[in-house]
Each structure stands twice: as structure tokens, then as C-alpha cells.
Design a protein around this nucleic acid. Structure first.
Lengths: 220, 220
DNA sequence: ATTAATCTGAAATGTTTGTTTTAAAATTAG
DNA sequence: CTAATTTTAAAACAAACATTTCAGATTAAT
């Protein structure tokens, strides 16, 4: 219990910190970061996925990431910054997957049906429930930063599906009285409900039947 | 810092606790609980509504309930028991409201449409988002007790709507190829999606349009 | 009025939280 | 090798957490 919080040492600490900030990207690097940040973020995401933001402690996170707290704070930042990185990563991955799917489209309506079936498969066969939805209900109302990210993700998916539906309408694969915008919102919000249903009832048949009903409704 | 943790006092404490348990509903009552438990539960529910289970601290709760922590622990129990009471209360209130609505039914299909419009109004004009949905995504996957309660609620609402839809099909107000069960699940899960949509986009028109689309789809 | 029991409020409990510090190990440049 | 600098691990940190204790206020029944 020595007096390590003297003026002298406090001054040294501040100096070091200041210096650190300005030399992070400097030419002279004494040592490189040991851990793979992408991999660590992935592990952290899985913890947030399972426990939620509030439910995940820093010890849960650093255990899963297999790094020390000091390394985490030196590279990524605090818990909130870590979560932002996780959500961003998750959202971007989803966007890339969505775009990847669009490359092998045969017809717009088939692409829409494929998207619906993908959603069903995710619900039934992925043990972690959608991080975006979970976060929406946990944090979006109170955390503006998170909300912006989730809205970007939502808008992207919306825009993607909207194009498909507009094309389908033009090609008369869909003959809907309802505007494409509403149809798009309707389909996407159905997905969220299916997630909830599966958490409560664990009934794959129920999800599949709802998907089938939605598909017949929109293709008429 | 006196030695109040002597064997004597520890024994007294244990005795008191044991005694308390067996005399909670005894004939001799020296003093009644001062606070209105229903009112306190209501206040606690509002805190959980806003902050979630993990996000609400005991101080948040006791402040809102305007009771001391010791009173809370003596009467209701710990945080989890309090939450169980809140959810139970919320779920029962919803059931009563649902049944109250059913008394003024003109026709099954009108009752279904009424239910859909009620949901829209709740989303748009109640500042607290559905506690059941929020809790589903926060806790249902990890907390068995909570999950049972939420499933009961879900099943009740499902059963209620199912009857209406079956009646509507019999009266040929609905001419659906799809079974009543699926139609019921589909409608209820749509509600969840609308909640999420409104949290992210705050767009009343979007919600209203989706509701209108759903109504035209089921009434054909 | 006395007694016996219970409730209440403030303070204290030990634990866990997110975060920081310290010292040593590690790495690169000269 | 030496010097400079960074990363790392373990421990320490204060604050916040849920929960308990206890003395005194309060009440119901005798």
C-alpha cells in the first residue's frame, strides 16, 4: 500500500497517456498487438448475443475474447465502444450476406421467396437469436448511437427488398393493390414476429406455416 | 463497530426469520403493511418497462415504489420475485382487457379488426413498449420461470383470437385457404414486428398502412 | 396500559460492476 | 547489446449492485 499516487507518479501517468495517444500510429512501434481484433470482436458478439448488453459483464467478455481487460481498453475502448463495434460488425456482415445472395437471383419474386426462406432457416437452425432485434428492444429506445446503427441496418434491408418487390410488380410476378413500400415493411416486420414466436413456442411447423402463408399472400 | 454478529444475535435473527415465515398469515397481526402493494407493483412495472430487467436497479425500483428496500424484501421478496409479480400483473391485466373487449362484439371479423386497431393504437399512443415482447427478447431464452409466464400469456391471446377467427370462417366472413391456427399466429406475430418498426422508425403512417394491408388480406 | 409482534428507515453487508494502475515481459530500432 | 516504447497480466480501484441487519417506531390484541 505504498504511496504510488504521489504528484510525481500522477504526472508521469498523464505524460505517458498523452504520449500514447499521439504515437499510436507513429513510425516507431515497439510491439504489435498480439490478439486478432476481428476474432475478438466475433467472440464478444457471441456473448452479447447470448446475454444482452446489460447482462454481459466485462469479465464474461474478456474471458470469451481471451484477452486481458487492459488490452481491451487500450485497443478497442470501453464496454459501449466494444458493443458498437460488435453491432457494426454484425450489421455489415448481414449486408454482405444479403448482397451476396442478390448475385444469384433468377427472378425478383424468387429472390423475395428465397429471402423469406433464409429468414426461416436462421430462426430454426441458428441458436443465437437475431442480435439486431434483441438490441432494438433492449437499447434502441434509450441509446441514440445504437439506434442510428440499427436504423441504418433496417433501412438497408428495406431498400434491398423494396427493389426486388418493385421489380416483381413491374414484371407482374406480384399483382398487389398495396404499394411496394408497405409490402416491404410488412414482410420485414413479420420476420421479427417469427423470431419472438420461436423463442416462446419452439415450434418449427408454426414458423414454416406462417412463412408459407406469407409467400402465398404476396405472390397471390 | 460493536460485535453484533455474536452467536446470540445470530441465533435471534434466525429465530425471527423462521418465525416470520410461519406467522405471515397468523391470527395475531401486530401491524399491517403500510404501502399499497398493487400500486407499488404498478410503479415497479413502469420502471421495468422503461429500463428492462437488467437495466433497472433496486434503487430505481424502491424510489419509484416509494418504499424502503427492507419493506420490499419483507413483503414481495427479491428483484426476481418482484419482476415475476410485475409480469404476472401485466399479463393478467392484458387478459382482462381482452375479455372486456369480447363482451361488446358485433361480429367475429369486426372483433378481429378491432383487435388489430387496438394494437396499432397501443404502439402509437402508449409511450411504453409492450413489456411482454421486451421481456421475451431479454429473458425468455435464459429464464424458465419468465418463459412459462410469457407462454401462458401468448397461449391465452392465441386461444382468444383463434376462436374469433374460427367463428369468422364459419360465418364465411373470412374465406381463407389457410387454417385458423396459422392465421392466428400470423396476425399476432405481425404485432411484434410493428412494435419493432415503430421503435426504429417512429413512423405512424407505416404502422397504419401495415395494419390496413393485414386487414384487407385476412378479410379478402 | 401493557405486551408482543411487525413494519420501517438508515446504515452496513459482501459481491460484482466497469475501469485503471503497476510492473514486468516483449519487441523493434539504432 | 542497449535504449526506447508498447503490450500484457494481475491486482487494485471506486462505484454500484442486490441484499441484510437492527434499532426504533408503530400497531393489534389482551
Amino acid at each position: 500500500m505504498a504511496g504510488w499516487l504521489t504528484f510525481q507518479s500522477k504526472y508521469d501517468i498523464n505524460l505517458k497517456h498523452t504520449f500514447q495517444i499521439y504515437t499510436t500510429f507513429a513510425d516507431i512501434m515497439a510491439r504489435n498487438v498480439e490478439f486478432d481484433e476481428d476474432r475478438a470482436i466475433q467472440k464478444a458478439m457471441e456473448v452479447f448475443w447470448r446475454k444482452g448488453y446489460g447482462g454481459a459483464s466485462m469479465r464474461d467478455l474478456t474471458d470469451a475474447m481471451q484477452i486481458n481487460a487492459s488490452s481491451l481498453y487500450n485497443t478497442i475502448g470501453d464496454k459501449h465502444q466494444l458493443f458498437i463495434k460488435c453491432i457494426t460488425n454484425y450489421v455489415h456482415t448481414r449486408m454482405e450476406e444479403t448482397l451476396a445472395h442478390s448475385s444469384k437471383i433468377k427472378s425478383p419474386i424468387k429472390a423475395v421467396i428465397g429471402l423469406i426462406n433464409d429468414c426461416v432457416n436462421t430462426i430454426l437452425y441458428s441458436d443465437n437469436h437475431c442480435l439486431a432485434i434483441k438490441t432494438t428492444f433492449e437499447l434502441a429506445s434509450t441509446d441514440p448511437d445504437i439506434k442510428v446503427l440499427l436504423k441504418q441496418d433496417s433501412d438497408f434491408t428495406h431498400g434491398f427488398l423494396l427493389k426486388l418487390i418493385q421489380q416483381a410488380i413491374e414484371l407482374k410476378e406480384i399483382t398487389s393493390d398495396t404499394d411496394a413500400e408497405t409490402l416491404t415493411s410488412f414482410i420485414l416486420s413479420a420476420f421479427t414476429g417469427w423470431h419472438e414466436s420461436y423463442i416462446i413456442h419452439h415450434d418449427p411447423v408454426r414458423i414454416k406455416k406462417m412463412a408459407k402463408y406469407l409467400i402465398t399472400q404476396i405472390s397471390q
